[in-house]
Amino acid sequence: MSEKNKEQTRLFTRMVAEKQGWKLNPDPSFYEDLVEGLMNNYNRYGYFLCPCRDSDGSREADKNSICPCLWSRQDILEYGNCFCALYISQSLAASGKQPSSIPDRRYEA
């Protein structure tokens, strides 16, 4: 499995944001922390596991938490940002407000 570097990971996030019509976290240091987290997860697990979710030990168990996670669209609609705050809505971006910590839908029934 070939490793990813930071620029490849940034490119991935830009492509996801563009495709989904989202914006990226405007805080440069927060965004870089998340890029590093995503990159590290890709390089150790082989997939872009959400940087704010722990692996349950296999790709199958983690599949819904692979970026963009299963709940990101719903979270962004409801809260304005995804769980790890990598992606934010156009309106949150326009408001200038910071993304916030939100509940994790991962284990919701």
Binding site: D33, E36, N40, C84
Partner: peptide, 10 residues
Amino acid sequence: ALSTCGFCKR
């Protein structure tokens, strides 16, 4: 925490 998580770091 998780070493990869932005909110954990903050």
